[in-house]
Structures are given as structure tokens and as C-alpha cells.
């Protein structure tokens, strides 16, 4: 069988791999690129454990063919922290004990980041519906929703600080 050569970007790095036509982006991330952060909970789009960003859009990597990644930009949980500094969501998940077993956590972090990137003041209901594609069997979601709410506050503060800095620079 002939493999398909693919060039793509993962967490800002140029990456090349050769995959089989049937292999999913999730298979490629995990088995070819050694990025095990995205998990397979179902392989059929139901659990969200495999969530990644594809060209800025939240997707289930189990429902994307590896070959489709050609020329695209992919972001995974491994790219979320800024060096040693955790993303506010990562930090708040830890502080709020929003993980028990943690298998769902990478998917929740990516999905929650997708939410906060376009809405930094989500209501409880907006958070719950935005995360409905991510299953967690351990927590009953309570602490996850609280952690996302707290992180939203951090993101808003960051945005304000950035706006202030910008305004100060203009003055």
C-alpha cells in the first residue's frame, strides 16, 4: 500500500508524515507524531476526548482523515501552555479539581479554549452547551464548569490589561 505524504503545522511547528488513507488525524497525532494528549474515547465523534483545533475550528480529530491535514494548522493540548506558564484554563482546572481521572481533560481544555477565544463572558448555560460534545464520566461536570467560569474571568482580565497597555502605548 502506498502511503500519503502530508505536510502540515502542529502547534506552530512544520511537520511532515506519511499516512494510510484510512488513518485519522487522531491516529496520526498519536501514532506518528507522538502527541498522545488527544485521546480516543470512542472514535466516532461522541466523546470529544480527541478534540483539537483545525484551522481555528474546534473538531474531533477522530473524524478528520490524516490526509486532510495537508496545508492546515493544527493545535493540540500540548501547545496550550506558554513555555512554563500554564494557560488560565489549565491552571483553573488544577485549582478547581476539575479532573478526576483526567482522560477527558485535554479535550475539555481545547473545547473550553475554543469557547473562551470567542466568548470570554459565557453564562453557565453557554458553558454547558459549548462543552456538551465532551463527555466526562467522573466529575458530573460541576467542577469543570466552575473552572471554565473562573478561567473566563482570567481571560477577561488579560484582555483588559492588554487593552490598557495598548491604550497607554497610544497615548
Amino acid at each position: 500500500m502506498k502511503g500519503i505524504p502530508v505536510s502540515t503545522t502542529v502547534n506552530g511547528d512544520d511537520v511532515e508524515f506519511v499516512c494510510d488513507g484510512r488513518e485519522t488525524l487522531l491516529d496520526v497525532l498519536r501514532n506518528h507524531l507522538g502527541l498522545i494528549g488527544a485521546k480516543e474515547g470512542c472514535g466516532t465523534g461522541d466523546c470529544g476526548a480527541c478534540s483539537v483545533m483545525l484551522d481555528g475550528q474546534l473538531v474531533c480529530s477522530c473524524l478528520v482523515l490524516g490526509a486532510e491535514a495537508e496545508g492546515r494548522e493544527i493545535e493540540t493540548v500540548e501547545g496550550m501552555a506558554d513555555g512554563e506558564k500554564l494557560h488560565p484554563l489549565q491552571q483553573r482546572f488544577l485549582e478547581h479539581a476539575a479532573l478526576q481521572c483526567g482522560i477527558c481533560t485535554p479535550g475539555f481544555l481545547i473545547a473550553a479554549k475554543a469557547l473562551l477565544d470567542h466568548n470570554s463572558s459565557p453564562s453557565e448555560s453557554e458553558i454547558r452547551y459549548a462543552l456538551a460534545g465532551n463527555l466526562c464520566r467522573c466529575t458530573g461536570y460541576d467542577k469543570i464548569v466552575r473552572a471554565v467560569r473562573a478561567a473566563a474571568g482570567d481571560v477577561r482580565r488579560q484582555q483588559k490589561a492588554r487593552a490598557r497597555r495598548k491604550a497607554a502605548a497610544q497615548n
Partner: peptide, 9 residues
């Protein structure tokens, strides 16, 4: 249809 993840596709 589906979740936010599915909506993206």
C-alpha cells in the same frame, strides 16, 4: 446537529 466539534465539520 451534533456538538460544537461536529458543527465545525
Amino acid at each position: 446537529i451534533g456538538s460544537d466539534q461536529i458543527q465545525g465539520r
